[in-house]
């Protein structure tokens, strides 16, 4: 096997890198791929709780690079899907506990066993970022439609280019259609124009993300979640399927019903 290493990054914190990694990884595994999620946020790990696997951690990424355990021993198998694994970050060390060189060697090991290696990058542009992008073939930049997030995304796109990752694609997260309609939120085209990179997908603001995170069950597992649906579509695009980025407006029954009510008013 010769898997693909994809880093998920954003610059700014709190825009949804970890949620995106968990959901895309789970969706890719649902579709029959062998997937490993790598948490590189050493000292502030969270991918384990978002995935609901926090109680099963024995070894972590730092144990692996320091040779305290075998790579295979540190991988936590997700019980929901055969092909899904998590390599957790260390919680008691800091970002300098591993080097970009070590990271590159480790992702090359993982390539042999998995179709997709999704690397969850920490916020910021320092050591943790440099580690996370070291072994990557592709990059996904997550941004929300806010000035601060788009500005940081622009900086990240520049830094990725310098590192030889000029094929970064964008996920716009937490967009609110009604605010866009009222002229109070930047739209997809505005952000694409400014960043001038390819759009991989758009995820709507959705309360079901909070609920699924509370439970440790990624939203893609739930059929009714709009964000989950968006992530499933993005996963199919990552696999190379040619499907539209944005879903039509009134796609589900409830939306159509709301539209009819609006028209009748």
């Amino acid at each position: 096997m010769n898997g693909k290493v994809i880093v998920i990054t954003s610059g700014k914190g709190g825009v949804g890198k970890t949620t995106t990694t968990a959901n895309l990884g789970t969706a890719l595994a649902m579709m029959g791929n062998n997937v490993v999620l790598v948490d590189t946020d050493i000292g502030l790990r969270n991918l384990d709780v978002v995935m609901g696997l926090e109680n099963r951690i024995v070894f972590d990424i730092v144990d692996v690079v320091n040779g305290h355990c075998k790579l295979r021993q540190a991988l936590i198998k997700d019980k929901r899907f055969d092909g899904l694994c998590l390599l957790p970050a260390a919680q008691t060390k800091d970002k300098s506990a591993i080097t970009p060189h070590q990271m590159k060697n480790m992702t090359n090991e993982l390539r042999k066993e998995f179709d997709y290696i999704l690397v969850d990058c920490p916020a910021g542009i320092e050591q943790g970022f440099k580690n996370a992008i070291a072994g990557a073939d592709d990059a996904i930049v997550v941004a929300t439609p806010e000035i601060s997030s788009v500005r940081d995304a622009d900086r990240i796109v520049g830094l990725l280019e310098v590192a030889g990752l000029s094929n970064a694609r964008l996920i716009i997260n937490r967009i609110r259609k009604t605010m866009v309609k009222h002229g109070d939120m930047m739209d997809i085209d505005d952000i694409i124009d400014i960043l001038s990179i390819d759009l991989l997908g758009v995820v709507p603001e959705d309360e079901s993300i909070i609920i699924s995170t509370n439970r440790g069950e990624p939203a893609v597992l739930e059929n009714g979640s709009r964000a989950g649906e968006a992530y499933r579509r993005i996963a199919r695009r990552i696999m190379g399927e040619d499907i539209a980025v944005v879903t039509g407006e009134a796609n589900n029954f409830l939306d159509r019903f709301k539209k009819i009510i609006k028209l009748a008013r």
Binding site: E146, G183, D184, M186
Partner: peptide
Amino acid sequence: GSREIAKERLRLV
């Protein structure tokens, strides 16, 4: 709307 303000400020920064 604030969308235009955001775009303009972002462009400059």
